[in-house]
């Protein structure tokens, strides 16, 4: 972990919302990302999980400065992306590329695959026309597409193939970091595995580092080395995948893990689970103190007053909770399905 490719320091993004009657001044703030720090090691995968509205996508967008932060810094190899000038950004941006959820809406329907993949190269004037074609073919082959289909249009491909195009386009600028925002959640289960395998192969061969954002804990467990669990704009628990999945200490992480349905009728039915009551509160007026306390089975008076810091309280990894549970796992080992036989 000493060799960090990305270091996020106290990132904050507040979106203004609501309008006062006359002056059009925002009346409230959506605290989408509210003080998030993490480190992404070179060649590693950081999984960011959380439910809708927890700020994970906003966080992803901040990393490549697709949106401007309210405050905070992102260091790419020690260089502050947020302080970069226009000219610096032009140099920095190719190093952080994105793969988004819906490959169909991310591809221009009137552009052929060749154009879609080549556009970023053209913007950064990397190659002349003939090498460009060659490069596109090479990329297509790399992501498992038939290079002969170079002149086809997005609608001629299946969902999985379109996501491969999306990956090829992200690779076009030879990035070091790829931020993948729900890259498989729009795909069928049988195809999800293909894309995940592809991402892992690419990481192994190109030495990429991933920030992998997903709501599906199963997918993240498979691909991530490190995991950060987010709730209402804050990281509540972080650590290696084994830390978070096997020694989960934050009541939210534990509830999240126990809520996943298990594809095994014998262990699944009737297993002990913590079903959280209620819904995620609004990020406009998050609860005081610990943001999870309104749904937390362990909440006490202190939680309403004092916000817990994200520190190691003897669990071996940082947890933002005053009363973390010990590392032993929840009843019934919900995530690891028994080997079938």
């Amino acid at each position: 972990m000493t060799d960090a490719i990305i270091e996020a320091i106290d990132l904050i993004k507040h979106f203004p919302t609501g309008k006062s009657p006359l002056l059009h001044r925002p009346t409230a703030l959506v605290r989408a990302v509210d003080g998030v720090s993490f480190t992404l090691g070179r060649g590693r995968t950081l999984g960011i999980v959380g439910e809708s509205g927890c700020g994970k996508s906003t966080l992803g967008r901040l990393l490549g400065r697709l949106i401007e932060p309210t405050s905070g810094r992102v260091l790419l190899d020690g260089e502050d992306v947020m302080a970069a000038t226009r000219r610096d950004l032009r140099r920095l941006r190719p190093r952080i590329q994105y793969v988004f959820q819906d490959p169909y809406s991310c591809l221009n329907p009137r552009h052929s695959v060749a154009e879609s993949i080549a556009t970023p190269m053209r913007i950064h004037r990397l190659y002349d026309r003939s090498t460009e074609q060659e490069k596109v073919r090479e990329l297509m082959e790399r992501v498992g597409l038939n290079p002969e289909h170079i002149n086809r249009f997005p609608h001629e491909f299946s969902g999985g193939q379109r996501q491969r195009i999306g990956v090829a386009r992200a690779l076009a600028l030879s990035p070091e970091v790829i931020v993948a925002d729900e890259p498989v959640s729009a795909l069928d289960v049988s195809v999800q595995a293909q894309i995940l395998n592809l991402l892992e192969d690419l990481q192994a061969s190109l030495g990429l580092s991933y920030v992998f954002i997903a709501h599906d804990l199963g997918v993240v467990r498979h691909i991530a080395d490190d995991v950060a669990v987010m709730y209402l704009g804050k990281v509540v628990e972080t650590g290696t995948a084994a830390d978070v999945y096997e020694r989960a200490s934050h009541p939210y992480t534990r509830a999240l893990l126990s809520a996943i349905p298990v594809a095994n009728p014998r262990t699944g039915k009737g297993r002990q689970r913590t079903v959280l009551t209620g819904d995620v509160p609004s990020p406009i007026n998050p609860p005081s103190g610990c943001r999870f306390r309104t749904r937390c089975p362990r909440a006490e008076d202190r939680c309403a007053v004092e916000e817990p810091a994200l520190v190691d309280r003897g669990q071996g990894h940082p947890v933002a909770c005053h009363f973390p549970e010990d590392g032993s796992l929840l009843g019934g080992d919900p995530v690891v399905a028994r080997p079938i036989r």
Partner: peptide, 15 residues
């Protein structure tokens, strides 16, 4: 594919 997703650890998924 679902099982290999659910199981811990890395390694090629069964797609």
């Amino acid at each position: 594919s679902v099982r290999s997703l659910d199981s811990a650890g890395r390694g090629s998924l069964r797609a």
